[in-house]
Simulated scan of single mutants.
Amino acid sequence: MSAAADGFRMPAEWAPHERTWMAWPGPNPTFDGPDDVAAARAAWASVAHAVRRFEPVTVVCGPGQAAEATALLGPGIDTVERDLDDAWMRDIGPTFLTDDRGRLAAVDWRFNGWGAQPWARWEHDARIAASVADLAGARTYASTLVNEGGAIHVDGEGTVLLTETVQLGPERNPGWTRDEVEAEIHAQLGTRKAIWLPRGLTGDYPPGGFGTLGHVDIVAAFARPGVVVAHSQPDPAHPDHEITEEIIGLLRARTDAHGRPLEVVEVPAPTELEADGRWADHSYINHYLCNGGVVLCAFDDPRDEEAAAIFRRLFPDRMVTLVDARTIFAGGGGIHCITQQQPRADVR
């Protein structure tokens, strides 16, 4: 039986959370050398502290790393030790589900290092979703689809955002048709309508650097049913200018699972066009909603406050907290990529 057939669905991120799960950076190809590891740990800790203001946080650490993590995280954040390869809990962790009976479940997607990327390791990360689900006391549904949490975004009312270069890419699911992917996504998340975007941002693809081959959570995300925030690149010198124009136009032409035309709120990209010698994919879309808060990526950029003002208007009952995300983006993701919500199962 699938999760949806058993009555489970993925709540929207703005639904109440039980806690947030994160993973602790350790030595691996993403963080090359002690200085990079230290910088990553400081960045991850800043996000954990920002989230902890609003809800409990549990950080999964590699064997023997919990004591050092606790020293940086402080006593208010829980730690647990499990084997890890990398530190992107959105992607390696479970996708949590709830039902109307107050039960918690989770999807354990297949994970293959973001499409078997040459720099990635995933022997341990491929098993961490089941481990975290077990720690949370969630019933686990193992999917046959190669997928990650950053590659999906739901409105909690039946609609899911996807990108063609992820779920339909040969690096993850060779031989799968669009219909087959949609059927599996709907069967696990309890959704019934998929809105496909053609691709992600330029900086999310090789050559050079790290990337996911087009995760949606850096491009577009639901802010509430019928409303999507979308990354906009105003500068024609950046290749994402044309890409984001196409995506925004596509979203405005779509309806959700209830037939509502989507309202699209454009969030301009930071002014910096390049980072580490590549086209920058810095994006405010990769934010994290927690109980009463919005943890928003910052880049020491003039548009940081402009983005914060947009999110304050969208979420007037939540406190918007800006956290420097440049170190996180240098590793291939953002604040949303390193956090994973566990929804409260007793909320109807």
Rank of each mutant, 00 (worst) to 15 (best):
F222V: 06
H215F: 06
V219S: 02
L201K: 03
L213H: 13
G203F: 05
T212P: 10
F210C: 08
A230L: 03
T212G: 10
H231D: 02
P207C: 13
G211H: 06
G214W: 00
H215A: 09
G209M: 05
R224T: 08
G209K: 04
A220M: 06
H231Q: 15
L201F: 10
Y205G: 07
D217F: 05
V228G: 08
F210N: 04
V216M: 02
T212S: 14
A220I: 00
G214D: 07
T202V: 15
L201H: 04
A221P: 02
D235V: 13
G200W: 04
G200A: 08
V229K: 09
G208P: 11
I218S: 10
D204R: 04
P225Y: 01
G226H: 05
G214N: 06
Q233R: 15
P236H: 12
G200K: 00
D204L: 06
G203A: 15
F222L: 09
Y205E: 07
H231C: 13
P206L: 12
A230S: 15
P234W: 07
S232Y: 02
V228S: 09
D235G: 12
G226D: 07
S232I: 01
I218K: 06
T212H: 04
G208Y: 08
P225K: 03
I218R: 04
I218M: 13
R199Q: 15
P207S: 13
T212V: 08
G226F: 02
Q233Y: 10
G200H: 03
V216P: 05
T202Y: 14
G208R: 11
F222H: 06
Q233K: 14
V219K: 03
I218P: 02
P206F: 13
P207W: 14
R224A: 15
V228W: 00
